[in-house]
């Protein structure tokens, strides 16, 4: 309960005579408008842009626009289908179906990966939750569609957004869960430590 003594009553400040005229404020406003008008007419520098033909420059790295699914070095989907993003998603807009991966270095991958862009609130929690930096929000904001179904992006679409945006915004920190240096133990010549030492010795002399 709020107590009476906690409430602070503030009276509106009295305006002076000049302030009551409002003229200085009006003139100040007019000055800005005229300045821009002058710039446009004389300097040819426009403030508005002809969207969508023209686009305003923006900070690519932290704008939270449409999602993309990153690819790893071999062009495969980087996602390991851990469901962290869909777990973290407050809008429940990510739907994943996992399956056994066809690749030897990973065991799980998303067979289906759908994001309902209309439900999404672009909070970026999925990006935060991803352990392999596979899902990222891009700077793309002009997402349009004619139906609701069209606005549910599937895996292929999300991967194609990566292709379109990766040259501008690189994948943050490619990591992969599990097994960085894999290999059959029997194929390794000598022990791994001996091998590593040999490798380092080559480095020492070089």
């Amino acid at each position: 309960m709020i107590k009476d003594e906690d409430i602070l009553n503030i009276d509106a400040p009295q305006l002076s005579a000049s302030e009551r005229l409002y003229l200085p404020q009006i003139l100040g406003g007019m000055k800005t408008t005229l300045q821009h008008m002058g710039n446009t007419l004389l300097g040819g520098k426009s403030v508005t842009v002809q969207y969508p033909e023209e686009k305003r420059p923006m900070r690519m790295d932290n704008y939270r626009g449409v999602h993309r699914l990153n690819k790893d070095e071999d062009g495969r989907v980087a996602c390991v289908a851990c469901f962290m993003c869909s777990t973290a998603c407050p809008a429940h807009c990510i739907h994943i179906t996992a399956g056994e991966s066809p690749w030897p270095d990973r065991e799980k991958y998303p067979v289906k990966f759908d994001i309902d862009e209309l439900r999404c609130i672009y909070c970026g929690m999925c990006e935060q939750a991803c352990p392999v930096d596979a899902i990222e929000l891009t700077y793309e904001y002009d997402l349009v569609g004619r139906t609701r179904e069209e606005m549910i992006l599937d895996k292929e679409e999300l991967l194609s957004i990566y292709d379109e945006t990766s040259h501008v915004k690189h994948r943050k920190n490619p990591r992969i869960t599990g097994y960085p240096n894999t290999g059959d133990r029997k194929q390794v010549e000598g022990g791994p430590i001996a091998k590593a030492v040999k490798h380092a010795e080559e480095g020492d002399t070089a």
Binding site: P192, V197, H199, D204
Partner: peptide, 14 residues
């Protein structure tokens, strides 16, 4: 040991 050698070995190992 040569400086940084342990670090290099470990980087090869992992």
């Amino acid at each position: 040991q040569p400086a940084g050698r342990a670090k290099r070995v470990l980087s090869v190992l992992n």
